[in-house]
C-alpha cells in the first residue's frame, strides 16, 4: 500500500464532504492510502490573492512545510482551488527570492521550513498517471455501461499549473470514465468556468456561467456531469431552482468523478456520499442495455431544453 500526504482543504469538510467520502475508499481499493496533514490550514484560495499576495503565500506555505515534515514524497489535494494555490505558491517561492525570504522567516518563527521538494498532485493525475488505467479497469466490478457522462474539468485544475494534461482539451477524465464503462459525451465546454465564487456574490453573471454548462450538458444528452472540484460541484448542483427561475429548467445531476469510480468498483452508494446531491443521482449497474446512442455534437439539438431568449446579451 502506497501512502501519500493528503491536504483536503476546507470544502471537503463542508459542502464538498461527499468528495472526501468517495475519494478515500476508492483510493484504498486501489492500494493507496492518504495521510491527512496534521492541523492543516486554509490555503487562502483565490480570495486571499486579491487581498495580499505575500500573506497568501505565507498562509499556503505552512501546508507545504507540514507536508515536507510528514515525509511522504508527494502531496495530494482534490480541490482545484487548493491545487492551484499550492502550486502557485511553489512557483512564487521559486521565482521570487524576496517572497521566499519573507516566507522562510515566517515559517521559522513556528519551527517550520520550506525546501520545495514535495510536488502537489491532484487525485485525477494520480489515478491516471500513477495507478494507471489498466489497474483501474481491473478493479471495476459493475461497469457503468450505457451511462452518458459529461466530463467537466473546470478551470483551475488544468490552468495554469497542470502539466499532466492539456490546458484547453484535457482528456484524463474522459479516458478514466471510459475505462469505467461509461459513455463519455463530447463536451467542448469541459474547461469553461462554472462561475466560481461569483455565483454567491454576483448571481446574474455567476449563475449564467453555470446555466450554460448545464444547458449544453442536457442538450448533448448527458445523464450526469462528472466533476473534479468541490466548487464546480456546488455551483452545478446547488443552484438549480435559481437557474430554473431565471432561464428555465436544466436539471441534470452533478457528482464527483470519484463517486462514479466507487459505483463502478461496486461500493455502496451511501458510503460514497451520493445521498448528498441536491439533484439526486441514482445508477443501477447491470440494469442498462449496453451501448446507447449518443447525440453527436453537430446534429440539431433536441427540443428541450429550449435556449430561451433573455440571456445576458439581450438584457
Amino acid at each position: 500500500m502506497t501512502t501519500f500526504a493528503y491536504y483536503p482543504g476546507c470544502s471537503l469538510k463542508g459542502t464538498g464532504r461527499a468528495y472526501e467520502e468517495s475519494l478515500l475508499p476508492v483510493l484504498a481499493a486501489l492500494g493507496i492510502k492518504l495521510e491527512e496533514l496534521a492541523d492543516w490550514n486554509c490555503c487562502g484560495a483565490t480570495a486571499y490573492m486579491a487581498v495580499d499576495e505575500v500573506k497568501a503565500c505565507v498562509m499556503a506555505s505552512r501546508n507545504l512545510a507540514l507536508a515536507e515534515q510528514l515525509g511522504h514524497r508527494e502531496l495530494v489535494t482534490p480541490c482545484s482551488a487548493c491545487y492551484l494555490v499550492l502550486n502557485k505558491t511553489k512557483q512564487y517561492l521559486g521565482e521570487s527570492r524576496a517572497v521566499a525570504q519573507v516566507v522562510q522567516r515566517a515559517l521559522g518563527l513556528v519551527g517550520l521550513s520550506y525546501q520545495g521538494n514535495v510536488p502537489v498532485r491532484h487525485p485525477l493525475d494520480l489515478l491516471v498517471n500513477v495507478v494507471g488505467l489498466p489497474a483501474i479497469k481491473e478493479r471495476v466490478r459493475d461497469p457503468l455501461t450505457g451511462l452518458k457522462v459529461v466530463p467537466y474539468y473546470g478551470c483551475q485544475l488544468v490552468r495554469p499549473y497542470a502539466t499532466f494534461d492539456d490546458q484547453d482539451r484535457p482528456t484524463s477524465m474522459d479516458r478514466l470514465l471510459g475505462v469505467l464503462g461509461a459513455t463519455v459525451v463530447p463536451y467542448p465546454l469541459k474547461t469553461r468556468c462554472c462561475g466560481g465564487s461569483l455565483t454567491g456574490t454576483l448571481p446574474e453573471p455567476g449563475l449564467h456561467c453555470a446555466y450554460i454548462l448545464l444547458k449544453e450538458a442536457v442538450k448533448r444528452g448527458a445523464e450526469v456531469i462528472a466533476t473534479v472540484c468541490p466548487l464546480c460541484q456546488f455551483n452545478l448542483d446547488a443552484y438549480h431552482h435559481k437557474i430554473a427561475a431565471k432561464w428555465g429548467p436544466v436539471r441534470v445531476p452533478t457528482v464527483y468523478f470519484t463517486q462514479l469510480m466507487g459505483l463502478a468498483f461496486g461500493l455502496p452508494a451511501r458510503q460514497l456520499g451520493l445521498h448528498r446531491g441536491l439533484v439526486p443521482f441514482a445508477f443501477e449497474a447491470g440494469a442498462r442495455r449496453p451501448e446507447r446512442e449518443v447525440v453527436p455534437p453537430d446534429r440539431p439539438p433536441p427540443a428541450t431544453p429550449a435556449c430561451r431568449a433573455g440571456g445576458p446579451l439581450a438584457s
Binding site: C10, K13, G14, T15, G16, R17, D39, W40, N41, V54, K55, V58, M59, R62, V102, R105, A106, L107, L109, V110, A238, H275, R276, G277, L278
Partner: peptide, 28 residues
C-alpha cells in the same frame, strides 16, 4: 437543501495551532 444533505454547518472549523498562524501572519 444543504442542511438536509448534511452539507451545512454552524460550528466553526478551526486549526489547533491558531497562535502559530497568527505569529506567521503578523511577521509579514
Amino acid at each position: 437543501g444543504l442542511w438536509r444533505t448534511g452539507r451545512f454547518s454552524l460550528r466553526h472549523e478551526s486549526i489547533r495551532q491558531r497562535a502559530d498562524l497568527t505569529r506567521m501572519m503578523a511577521s509579514v
